[in-house]
Write a protein that binds this DNA or RNA. Structure first.
Lengths: 335, 335
DNA sequence: TTGTACGCGTTATCAA
DNA sequence: TTGATAACGCGTACAA
């Protein structure tokens, strides 16, 4: 019924359980002859390790950390909520997750958080700074498995990235912007920070497709909203004052300000934003926002946990597993 | 380190392990005084059952069946592939999945497949026929947990549905069709079968939004392509011959025929189809298809397994868990 | 009504 | 370099 066990392997290899264990978990101290016998027996019997039993025996509890920015609005709030939701499920599978809140853009704080970590694996959403990359290396060297979450650190020693393909996200935004807008006009792009990688990648994708396929639209220079509603509102107001905007692509947070500004504008621009939050959801409903590009936080958490587990259990992880689908929400589509 | 165990509960309740077990799995034959003591001890210690250990001890292997249409192209092929991919992972977690192929629309065959099932839970993708609903009831009565997959049987005794909100899918298709098409014209809707619930729901959603928001477009009567490429090709050709089509919404399979027909047409209609297959992917690339509404097969399989497991382990399942996101793919967005 | 003792598949300790 | 043997947390015959 339930497949062959170590006992079966030991019997067919004619060695003891301990020897089988030593080979299976290559602890060394086994004669090459015995090793060969065991390996043959494994192949012959078709043995696969029973992870549940293994973990039970070694009384193993996986401890995974999430180092993520805190905040009670917007995307990070959704992320926190998703983490809390998963927690109870995971406890039953002997997986303990600990959430370590940091402040966005506060590199020193993030480094400090990473420094006194005590866990098997960690998912990090942090700034792309050299200090952080160093911490990642240190963690890896001390045996902690590291994955990046939402914001990648491709130069670092992280073993996997869970999140969006941000270039593709930008390209997608451009495609819909272009197709929604028949006539010519000017389009405003608002990033949170021009020095953050994910925002930059989105910008790049957006620009490129606009150039390639929608030359009837003119791109204004990208502005920086600092993920702050007031700044965003002011920027949109200023841009609209000079000339009528036909489109706005908001890359970062601060959508409350964006909605206010758009509602005040004379002609409604096609508005595309990121992340499905209460604000953007409402914007879709009342027609202020035309499209929301969303990165599913629940899916991200699930994927991150799965990868951390695969890594600590020594399984292969394909880059595919970390790819979070870009969800596109429109008025008819809000869940 | 790893939480309280039955031993801890027994000790604080001052009863034996067997008594704790009897209360925990309410097998009866326990004095109300002892029961109260155990319950108090559980609450006090914060005990949660270690499912892995429980299953190990009772040598339990979950056996889940997937009764799904066979076929080596299109959506069902993707589904099969996703199932095969999950299989190896699941074996390690003592979950055996068996795939039972049926023929689409062959109710008798599907009933037969359901009749001699031997498993803990089953995920069914089948026609909405009374015979099938009866089988579902029979299965449930005999203790098998039943979830529907992709095609729901809302009238039946199934305990959960894993799949799309098809009305929302149709509404979404209509929204993008309407926004992509500024000028007026005629739109063709092709369903696979007008008697299948999912296709009908998509049609309904599509029609409704067209009426509500895009009255400059005229809907032709829906036609039936039987999920067959040749039929679809012929239908499109016929419709285009009479008058120029500005849009096509293809609800079922047979996209190969659709692509051929569109490529031959004089003016390219806005074309929206379902399911990201090699054909529709290629259609997006070369511009024949404008949008693909996709239901992620991997996500569906994972969700189905998760729900089947939750059900057999006696956990609550929220309807939320079964909701598969509608993925919208455009040319810039293909993964 | 209650309790004891063993098995599940794997790991780990100790002695040989 | 090897091999018994005792855990791990839970379920379950069987005995009391």
């Amino acid at each position: 019924m339930s497949g062959p066990t170590v006992h079966d392997v030991a019997r067919t290899a004619q060695v003891s359980l301990a020897t089988v264990d030593r080979v299976l978990n290559n602890r060394g101290g086994v004669s090459s002859k015995a090793e060969a016998k065991v390996k043959a027996a494994v192949a012959q019997t078709g043995y696969v390790r029973n992870m549940a039993a293994a973990n039970l025996s070694r009384r193993r509890v996986y401890r995974f950390c999430f180092v993520v920015p805190s905040g009670d609005t917007g995307f990070v709030a959704l992320l926190q909520a998703a983490l809390e939701r998963e927690r109870s499920r995971l406890v039953e599978e002997q997986i303990l997750i600990q959430i370590i809140p940091t402040h966005a853009f506060d590199v020193a704080g993030q480094v400090a958080a990473l420094r006194d970590l005590d866990c098997d694996a960690v998912a990090i959403m942090a700034s792309e700074a050299p200090e952080i990359q160093e911490e990642v290396s240190r963690l890896r060297a001390s045996g902690v498995r590291v994955v990046t979450l939402v914001a990648d650190l491709p130069q670092s020693d992280r073993e996997a990235y869970v999140g969006l393909d941000n270039v593709a996200a930008g390209r997608t935004a451009a495609e819909f912007m272009g197709r929604f807008l028949g006539a010519s006009g000017e389009v405003l792009m608002i990033a949170g920070s021009l020095s953050s990688r994910d925002h930059n990648e989105r910008l790049m994708g957006f620009r490129r497709v606009m150039q390639e396929r929608f030359q009837h639209l003119t791109l204004l220079p990208a502005v920086e909203g600092n993920d702050d509603a007031q700044s965003v509102e002011r920027l949109v107001a200023e841009a609209s004052a000079a000339r009528p905007l036909v489109g706005i692509y908001a890359i970062g947070a601060g959508n409350k300000g964006l909605v206010r500004a758009v509602q005040k504008a004379d002609a409604k621009p096609v508005t595309i934003v990121h992340e499905l939050t209460p604000t953007s959801r409402q914007g879709l409903r009342d027609g202020t926002i035309d499209l929301v590009l969303d990165q599913d936080t629940s899916a991200a958490v699930v994927a991150a946990v799965r990868i951390m587990r695969d890594l600590t259990e020594g399984r292969e992880v394909s880059a595919e597993t970390g790819k979070i689908r870009l969800n596109i929400f429109s008025r008819e589509n809000i869940q």
